[in-house]
Design a protein around this nucleic acid. Sequence first.
DNA 1: CTAGGCATGTAACTCGTTACATGATTGG
DNA 2: CCAATCATGTAACGAGTTACATGCCTAG
Lengths: 182, 182
Amino acid sequence: MNSLAYALLSMLVRKPCSGYELKQLLEVFWQAKHSQIYPLLQKLEQDGLLTYELVGQSGKPDKKIYTLTDKGLSILKEWIAQSPAVPVIRDEFLVKVYAIWLTDIATAKKLFDERMRAINEKIAYREEELRKMRDTFGDSIEDIACTHFGRYILYQRRLRQEREEIEWCKWVMNLLEKSAFS
Amino acid sequence: MNSLAYALLSMLVRKPCSGYELKQLLEVFWQAKHSQIYPLLQKLEQDGLLTYELVGQSGKPDKKIYTLTDKGLSILKEWIAQSPAVPVIRDEFLVKVYAIWLTDIATAKKLFDERMRAINEKIAYREEELRKMRDTFGDSIEDIACTHFGRYILYQRRLRQEREEIEWCKWVMNLLEKSAFS
DNA sequence: CTAGGCATGTAACTCGTTACATGATTGG
DNA sequence: CCAATCATGTAACGAGTTACATGCCTAG
């Protein structure tokens, strides 16, 4: 049982899903390729944490809809109460930033410009998603018992982090400007 | 050549280091175990990006001090100008947060309390490190040409992100309190 | 006297990515 | 007609962790 396995259970506790659907939904907090998800779902099914049902579709391939079992639910609940592993962040941009003093100001600015553009796109997306959630669920979204509460507060977190990173980028850009005139 | 390899070159461009030292310094932007670092340094040396010198010490084991070659430097410079890969974040805490609606408020609060404590410790450490840097280098630390500029702005970034996460945790804790009384 | 820091290395394993493989439908 | 979306899978590889292995010094 690795973190990805628990991430899959966490998604399935809300509603039964296909592997394909899980892959999309998972992107909020855990990125994984389908080649890692499909075999893991099979393994979880063999271990009795999930069951699946083959659903035929017209004009689309068949799909396996996975459902959480009672065993799966109790294992998930146990895991949540345990203290989480230390987070891992791997961001090539930060490595480049560390070595930025090697390059000229134009290259440095380009690096930060691109980063800001990428983050601003994400911010627009998050704001849109949050707006949708509030439209659909109203105030109940801010209640812990709401099934979308977790997703809601995670989006809020991302948005805050991204806005803060924009502020930092601006601050660095300012230092670069100053360096250019000295 | 993977990201870790470039991370090592980025450290070595500032000054020659041993593998052991690199491991500590690397923690600002890339976490890796010594079992990954030592073989990679050997490989980079074989590829002619690094050279090393064996340094005997009294009362301590010998160490290999690695130095960047001209080839290593030019390869690093080329890499910096290319646009970075998308960042990867793997944080078990966020998975647990997603599924938090399953648990009781006490468990939820405990999860957030522990997170806040861990982050507050890091904040204190970063503030101390930044104070040291400013004491040692003065205003020159805010100039792109300073060899410690990259490290300085990375610490600033971390500090901002961590402070922002504390704010988010407080906001969530507030929602949990409200849920408890409804 | 023992826990932790210094210092390096290999072996076995798990985790994650890239590539290979298939095939129907829909929109531009 | 070509690209994208839906939908699932395996094989080979690369990245990263855990465990095994050694040995001396210092501080509590």
